[in-house]
């Protein structure tokens, strides 16, 4: 199979394109599919973006629009998680690693051991909002209260000014970058309580919050809808509560905001520059806002 791909270059280009279209359709399909794609992509000379699932829809949309004006170049986008993307950068199986967290010190070390240097670009911001069931009377919480709820010290809504109802805290699975970021920013690196309900996807989290009265959970701002209620959050012990919105995230008053990064190898800057420039351009950033993320300007 592999040898065929190398020998029949013109043909593979064609298959590659059809793969890209099918990828659009199955944008969130299983990892198995992603791996199959990867094996395919591994033998190609086109640009490859890999990493965070949070960045996945954004990178896909951007690559799609880029492909419209640059018929010759192919960009393939795959998910797998921020860590997966960065380790692919290390092994050279991707050109750009997309990440929803900053590169770790240990990862930077591994790269420099291989004589590589990673360059970092912030392409957008993503805000996390805390959501509850719409019937919940509580509309604002401090960071300390959130920490208490998610680490299991606060178990009833009446302790934070609500009705007498058991708190049901939902979280994402451990493989999610969102899980890590919430733990870092809100719980200050403490562990979630044992027995927190963990859901495999953001969609499942929202579904559960909609049908559970005492529920509380966190989702990306882009996923907010009418069926759930989002809470204002205070990071200054209750002096000011900030509503999660694109505007508040942009003017940096809303605290639970994280940057989304692209990492690439400094030596390969020439190859990836045109696409990254496009992402950072006004047109690219318009797509960023359209998808519910926060543009960098």
């Amino acid at each position: 199979m592999k040898r065929e791909i190398i020998n029949l270059k013109p043909k593979t280009q064609k298959t590659m394109k059809s793969k890209t279209t099918s990828k659009r359709i199955f944008s969130r399909m299983s990892i198995a599919f992603a791996i199959a794609m990867l094996m395919f992509v591994g033998t190609m000379s086109a640009q490859r973006i890999k990493g965070s699932d949070t960045c996945l829809p954004l990178s896909q949309k951007l690559a799609e629009q880029w492909a419209k004006t640059h018929k010759k170049s192919n960009i393939s986008v795959t998910g797998g998680g921020s860590g997966v993307g960065i380790s692919a950068l290390l092994t050279g199986t991707t050109d750009i690693a997309q990440a929803s967290r900053k590169i770790k010190f240990s990862e930077k070390e591994k790269l420099s051991n291989k004589g590589k240097q990673a360059k970092e670009v912030i392409i957008a911001y993503d805000a996390l909002s805390v959501i509850v069931h719409p019937s919940n009377k509580v509309s604002k919480l401090t960071r300390e209260q959130l920490e208490g709820i998610f680490t299991g010290k606060i178990t009833n809504w009446k302790e934070v000014g609500g009705q007498d109802l058991k708190i049901v805290a939902y979280s994402r699975e451990t493989s999610s970058g969102t899980y890590e970021f919430f733990k870092e920013s809100v719980l200050l690196n403490k562990n979630y309580k044992t027995g927190i309900l963990s859901m495999p996807s953001t969609g499942a989290v929202i579904q559960s919050v909609v049908q559970t009265k005492g529920a509380i959970a966190y989702v990306g701002l882009a996923y907010l809808n009418q069926k759930v209620k989002s809470l204002s959050v205070s990071y200054d012990k209750g002096k000011s509560y900030i509503v999660p919105s694109v505007q508040n995230a942009k003017n940096k008053t809303y605290p639970i905001v994280r940057p989304l990064y692209y990492y690439y190898i400094a030596k390969q800057e020439q190859a990836v520059k045109p696409f990254i420039d496009y992402v950072l351009s006004a047109e690219g950033q318009k797509t960023v806002s359209k998808l519910g993320f926060i543009s960098i300007k």
Binding site: T194, G195, I196, L197, M199, P200, A204
Partner: peptide
């Protein structure tokens, strides 16, 4: 994975 809540208690 989807219906059991996945709480390790």
């Amino acid at each position: 994975l989807m219906v059991s809540g996945n709480a390790a208690v």
